[in-house]
Amino acid sequence: MSDAAISRAVHPWWASRRLGFLAAALVIAALPMMLTGNYWQTNLTICAINVLLALGLDFILGYAGQLNLGQSAFYGLGAYVSTLLITRLGVPFWAAFAAGVAFAGLAGMILATFAVRLRGHYLAIASLGFAVITYQILLNWINLTQGPLGIYAIPPPPAITIPGLPAISFRNPVALFYLVAGVTLLVYFILDQLVRSPIGETLTAIREDEVSAASLGINTALWKVFAFGVGAAVGGAAGCFYATFVGTLVPDAFFITESFTILAMVIVGGMGTLIGPVFGAVLLTLLPEVLRGVGDLRLMVYGAVLTLVVLFMPGGLVQAARVVGARLGLSR
């Protein structure tokens, strides 16, 4: 077989990236029209925020192989930093958004710098400790965060005016969904480009074996800090959107169980792939909504699913899809 033929066999037309992104954009555009009503539109935006959170964690866990249990903290930092800048200092939304993202990313890099000499479990505990500290600070620094009382009446992003068209107001939940989903798609594109570049090769080498990676000239400490920076920044972006979408902020939204929920989304979808966590996040966001009867037991279902997937299908939905695909003769 020629190289071109091999390339066609490995990447058939229906697996083409451009078509994938186009299809994703169409689905995003169509969803609010198909699923109308306040209830669904709320859930769609929550889905998009959770996808963003899961993508951020997956970059750290699935690619660089570092178990980060502090994603809830980066989420919370993004939310509080952007919101406080907007409500206290009157900073414009997009500047506050950038600051929230940067702050979360920086926090991730600082945590990783501290914890970088540690491997596997130590890092998990250190990041859990970071999540606990962050939560407690949000709860106890009442002068700044108003503690458990929370911050109310957070405005939506300012309307976008394009000359010649009616202004797009983000008080309209559909417009806000388009904004969040659009940014999520952009983040997906960026991460996809990164993991298909030598950066992806470097991170997976670290995930597979750090000593070996160092023997190939990889500065493992530096790249772990990089992975944490990117993943935490994406988590911070999710936090900014959460604050402006819900309109209120209380520390409990960023308790450590939120980290476990995000972890479940990544694992259920399939860590180490980008598409997996997208479906994992959507599934785990909608599952309790579909199973209304067990609504109270949302977290119990998450816990059970997380354990069962690790035990029986550690590659998550992506692995399941591959197994089914192989049965149907679709894959190579």
Binding site: T204, A205, E208, D209, V211, S212, S215
Partner: peptide
Amino acid sequence: FQKIRLFKQL
């Protein structure tokens, strides 16, 4: 390496 250290899943 004496004890082979490849990236086994790659």
